[in-house]
């Protein structure tokens, strides 16, 4: 049984005297247990709507959605026992209360026995590095710490499925790296994680599979590497110890779009077609270049290819 199964999901927001806005339009999705699944797409693509439906905060207009085998409409209570929602930022916590008090309240709402809750809270405080500030109001916390409090709150009830809605937005790089490490630990512990994010590097690092959403539809679903390989996009080839003559040969090759060299003799070559990679590699080998590496198009390139650039238009 899959952790999340979505079939023909449609959500329309109706407004008085206006045509309905289709937020999700025929979504089919299957997330297996233990997966870290990324939802990628621009603002307004439907990521948050989907996350809300999965966490029972919003009812679908049509289609079926099952989480851990339970229907989100008819078995909402059972779904809620299996899902932990993690929001990003300062919203969703009682700022005047400490992490311990926030979690205690949540544990009570999830009917976790007090003794179990106390033990779990103690170990979560240690695991998330919040022990020293366990009894301080969370409104005094930094963004990275707040995110750990969010995660701890969701984990107090030990749900098998976690839904993370833009968990690292606005975090500094160190905090984001720390948070990603926590997600990796959770995956190792067998949790299923669905993560809506704008951060392509984060999705590449963490997700076993990703889905690209735009205007309420899924454009592509696969693992990040395969999506990149399938794309006829920019590939980069880098190497060190490249002589100036070799650089001139590389620049003369057809299909080489960009060729940059730094002072230490490291060269980075960009090509757009798959068939242009081999001649570049051949030249580098002939010129005895070292540390030759190739990188296919990343999720960022996939994103730029799949989703039309609307710049600042809404």
């Amino acid at each position: 049984m899959a952790a999340i199964e979505v079939t023909a999901l449609r959500r329309v927001f109706t407004q008085r005297r206006r045509p309905g806005h289709v937020a999700l339009d025929g979504i089919d999705l299957r997330v297996e247990r233990g997966e870290v699944f990324g939802l990628l797409g621009p603002n307004g693509a439907g990521k948050t709507t989907l996350s809300r439906i999965l966490s029972t905060l919003l009812l679908p207009t049509s289609g079926t959605v099952r989480v851990a085998g339970h229907d989100v409409v008819t078995e909402a209570r059972a779904v809620r026992s299996c899902v932990g929602l993690v929001l990003g930022g300062e919203r969703g916590l009682y700022g005047r209360l400490s992490p311990r008090r926030n979690w205690e309240y949540w544990a009570a709402m999830c009917r976790v026995p007090s003794r179990v809750a106390r033990t779990r809270i103690a170990s979560l405080l240690a695991e998330l590095g919040l022990e020293s500030r366990a009894d301080e109001p969370v409104e005094t916390f930094s963004r990275g710490m707040l995110q750990r409090v969010h995660l701890g709150r969701a984990l107090v009830a030990d749900p098998p499925v976690l839904i993370l809605d833009e968990p690292t937005s606005g975090m500094d790089p160190n905090a984001a790296i720390g948070f990603r490490r926590l997600v990796e630990d959770l995956q190792a512990a067998g949790k299923t994680i669905l993560m809506a994010t704008h951060d392509m590097a984060e999705a590449e690092q963490l997700c076993t599979r990703v889905a690209f959403l735009d205007r309420g539809r899924i454009l592509a679903t696969d693992d990040p590497e395969r999506l990149g390989r399938a794309l006829d996009g920019v590939r980069t080839i880098s190497a060190t110890h490249v002589a100036p003559a070799a650089v001139r040969r590389l620049e003369a090759l057809p299909g080489v779009g960009e060729c940059t060299v730094d002072g230490s003799g490291k060269v980075v070559v960009g090509v757009t077609r798959r068939e242009d990679v081999s001649p570049v590699l051949a030249v580098l080998a002939e010129e005895n270049a070292r540390d030759i590496r190739t990188a296919g198009p990343g999720l960022l390139e996939v994103y730029r290819t799949l989703i039309a650039d609307r710049e600042f238009s809404l």
Binding site: G84, L93, M109
Partner: peptide
């Protein structure tokens, strides 16, 4: 206002009572 309603509604039961 604080966004806690969104989170608390995902509790299995008891939010209304609370």
């Amino acid at each position: 206002f604080s966004g806690t309603m969104e989170v608390n509604l995902t509790a299995p039961a008891g939010y209304l009572v609370s």
